[in-house]
C-alpha cells in the first residue's frame, strides 16, 4: 500500500537519499576541503617539493595556472577558492630571491584559505629549518585512536540513517493515524472484531519492513556510490535501527493522540523533527553547540540513537558501550508507549 502512496514514499526514501547524494557528492570519496589555483613560476627544489607535498597531502585539489590574473579571474567565477602564487626564483638561495609565497583568497571561503595557510606554514617552517641545517625541537605527534579511515561523509551517513527513520516514522505515523481517524477509517475498523492492539502492532510491523528497505538503500548508495566506510556488523546495525524506528513510531502515536486533524499532526510532527534534525548531531557533532544547548539536546531521542548508530557503524563497538545512550532511548520508548496506551484512540470519542 505504501509503495502506491507516492508522497509517503518520497518522505521515506527519496528525502534521505537526496541528503545522501548531496553529502556524498561534497564529501564522499574525496576528503579535500576545496580547490585552489596555483601559479608556480619557480623551478627550484623547494618549489618542486612544495608542489609535491601539496599534492601528496590530498588536502586540496590543485589547478595550475600560468598567470595570477588568470587564476584570480577563475576565483571570481567561484571555480576555485584560493590562489597560491610561488614567485619566480622562490627557493633560490641567491641574495635578493623572493622568500615569500602569496595567497589570494575570498573571504567567503576562509576555510580553504586557512587549510592552505596551515599547510604552507608547516611546510615552510620545516624548509627554513632544513635550509639552516637546524632540527625542529618541538613538534606535534597526532595519534589516531583507530587505524580506520573515517570521513565526514561517514559521519553524516550515520546521521542520515537516523534522520530517515525519524522523518518516516514520526511524520508517517502521526499523519496517517490522524488522517485515518479523521476519515473514520479507524472507526470503521472498530466495528470489526479486530482487537485494537493487533491493528497497531500490524501498522508498526509493516512500517518496520519499510524501514529495513529504507536503511538498506541508504547504506548501499553510501557504500557503493560514495565509498562510505561501514565497519560494524549489519546484524547489529539493523536491529538497532529498528529499535530507533519503533521509538519514532511511538512518538508518532503520541502526536496522533493529541492531534485532532491530519493538518495539526503534520504541524506537530514538523515542530518535533526539524529541531532534532539540526540539533542532535545529524550533520555535525553536537559538542560544537553552546554548552547550555548541548546539555538539553543530548537527551532528545535522536541524539543518543545517533551516538549508538555511529558506535556500531563507524567504531564497530557494541551499542551498549556507553550505557547512558541505551538508557535514554529506552526511557523514551517506555514513556512514549505509556502515553500512547493512555491517550491514543481509534475514534474521536
Amino acid at each position: 500500500m505504501l509503495s502506491r502512496n507516492r508522497q509517503a514514499s518520497f518522505w521515506a526514501l527519496f528525502f534521505p537519499l537526496i541528503f545522501t547524494f548531496i553529502f556524498g557528492l561534497f564529501f564522499g570519496k574525496t576528503t579535500t576541503v576545496g580547490t585552489i589555483g596555483e601559479v608556480n613560476k619557480s623551478n627550484t627544489q623547494i618549489a618542486k617539493a612544495l608542489d609535491k607535498a601539496l599534492i601528496d597531502s590530498k588536502l586540496l585539489k590543485i589547478e595550475k595556472f600560468d598567470s595570477v590574473d588568470e587564476a584570480k579571474s577563475e576565483m571570481k567565477k567561484n571555480t576555485i577558492s584560493a590562489v597560491l602564487v610561488v614567485p619566480e626564483d622562490f627557493g633560490d638561495f641567491a641574495p635578493g630571491s623572493p622568500t615569500q609565497v602569496q595567497t589570494y583568497y575570498d573571504q567567503g571561503n576562509a576555510q580553504v584559505n586557512s587549510v592552505l595557510i596551515g599547510f604552507l606554514n608547516s611546510f615552510l617552517t620545516n624548509a627554513s629549518f632544513q635550509s639552516q641545517n637546524a632540527k625542529m625541537v618541538f613538534s606535534v605527534d597526532a595519534i589516531k585512536i583507530s587505524d580506520r579511515e573515517l570521513t565526514y561523509f561517514d559521519f553524516v551517513l550515520a546521521g542520515i540513517l537516523g534522520l530517515a527513520l525519524m522523518n518516516s516514522s514520526i511524520i508517517g505515523i502521526a499523519i496517517a493515524m490522524s488522517k485515518y481517524r479523521e476519515d473514520k477509517i479507524l472507526k470503521r475498523i472498530t466495528t470489526t472484531p479486530l482487537p485494537t492492539w493487533v491493528f497497531i502492532v500490524a501498522e508498526v510491523l509493516s512500517r518496520l519492513v519499510l524501514n529495513i528497505f529504507q536503511v538498506t538503500i541508504i547504506l548501499l548508495v553510501g557504500y557503493f556510490v560514495f565509498d562510505a566506510h561501514i565497519y560494524g556488523s549489519l546484524f547489529v546495525l539493523i536491529p538497532l535501527v529498528l529499535v530507533g524506528a519503533i521509538l519514532f513510531q511511538l512518538l508518532g502515536f503520541v502526536i496522533a493522540s493529541f492531534s485532532k486533524t491530519a493538518d495539526a499532526a503534520q504541524g506537530m510532527a514538523t515542530a518535533l523533527t526539524i529541531p532534532m534534525m539540526f540539533l542532535t548531531g545529524v550533520f555535525f557533532p553536537i559538542d560544537q553547540l553552546p554548552k547550555w544547548l548541548y546539555s538539553i539536546v543530548q537527551f532528545l531521542p535522536l541524539a543518543p540513537l545517533l551516538r549508538m548508530i555511529r558506535q556500531v557503524m563507524l567504531e564497530a563497538t557494541s551499542p551498549f558501550d556507553n550505557p547512558i545512550n541505551a538508557i535514554i532511548v529506552a526511557a523514551w520508548i517506555v514513556g512514549a508507549l505509556l502515553i500512547s496506551i493512555w491517550k491514543f484512540r481509534l475514534t474521536e470519542e
Binding site: M1, N5, D183, K187, T191, T192, P193
Partner: peptide, 21 residues
Amino acid sequence: NGRVKQKIGVQLQSSAYYQFL
C-alpha cells in the same frame, strides 16, 4: 463486544476506506 461484532455488519454514516487499496 467482540462476539457481537463477529455477527453484525456496520455501515457508518460517514467513513472512508484506505486510499491506496
